[in-house]
Design a protein around this nucleic acid. Sequence first.
DNA 1: TATTCTTATTGACCGGTGTTCAATAAAACT
DNA 2: AGTTTTATTGAACACCGGTCAATAAGAATA
Lengths: 190, 190
Amino acid sequence: MTPRKSAQDELTKDAIIDVARDLFVAEGYDSISMRKIAKVLQCSHGAIYYHFKNKAELFYEIINHDFQQLNQELEDTINENQISNEEKLFLILYRFIKFGLTHQNHYEVMFLIKDDEVKSYLANGPYVSYQRFAEAIAKLSPKQVHMKDIWSLFIGLHGFVTHYSRTETTFEEVEDLVKSHCQFLLKALS
Amino acid sequence: MTPRKSAQDELTKDAIIDVARDLFVAEGYDSISMRKIAKVLQCSHGAIYYHFKNKAELFYEIINHDFQQLNQELEDTINENQISNEEKLFLILYRFIKFGLTHQNHYEVMFLIKDDEVKSYLANGPYVSYQRFAEAIAKLSPKQVHMKDIWSLFIGLHGFVTHYSRTETTFEEVEDLVKSHCQFLLKALS
DNA sequence: TATTCTTATTGACCGGTGTTCAATAAAACT
DNA sequence: AGTTTTATTGAACACCGGTCAATAAGAATA
């Protein structure tokens, strides 16, 4: 049996996450196997299981960071100075789609995946992000909006990201369409 | 080696499709293996490959039928008597979502799947269905609508189906929400 | 320093997947 | 009866996620 690694080369959670993140971003959850990750890390695939219970947990550590980033972006938009509420409203929608399309493979898992294993790790990440979103929309809207309408608005954004993720379109390729889609949805809100 | 089947038990494309359809509907594309299909058919998994080039092609034969059904439903709605254009417009949206949520696993493949193998077989099925949809919306709208808005409308429906497919919600469970979502989208159109 | 203990890694193994293909037997044709 | 075509079998291949006994490196202890 080849000997185990020496201390200097010892595997760390962070090292695994760094490699796994790149691979997942590039090819998505299903396409990346533990063995592929291990190969890049130059370790056996079994070693990864010492640091993470399973593939889903490893992925969750990455996804969790993305939810925080999404929430942060939303907050930044709310707190931005020198722009009107109307503009903020637009920016929230616009940036949500931008986030989704620039993190396509992660978005898929954050809001789309059916895999029960992964879903159980996601826990309330999607729920929290949506709550923050809904509060922001309610606060920034010129007139009272129904909860259901905010939900429909969100679903409308979700559909956009979902569709263009399927076709692996970049945000830049559809930037204009993003704008008109956001305007379309805002028309329904008022 | 056990002998091959006798003529009366011979495998047919239709027999495979019938079994595969039920299994795919119940558990989705990924969860159903060729071996599971073969087990129900009481044949070897290799035999299926004599009738279908691969799993994707088998699934496509099923999906293709679904596109035709979706297109038929749309046409039926257009040709329905004794209802106004406004009501037809609503019904088209409503029934699209209904279709999506009552064929969740198929919808996923029809409009959502990333699997390149399957996508290549889908060919222009989604495209054709969308064209028919867009034409119907344009015709039934009281005033001129932009192409982009029809697209946004569709994306809005797509998002709804996609989200509730992920959570495996039945159409009946969200029937009221479907109505309000359709109304929301129609508000944006006018 | 010698010994024990803890910790991290390895890789064989399990049961599963889609797909291929040589062998073969049933049916059809000559 | 003999030949050809056709449909089926199941072993084999290269993957997958996950488990775990064996083991070696490093730390702690005597």
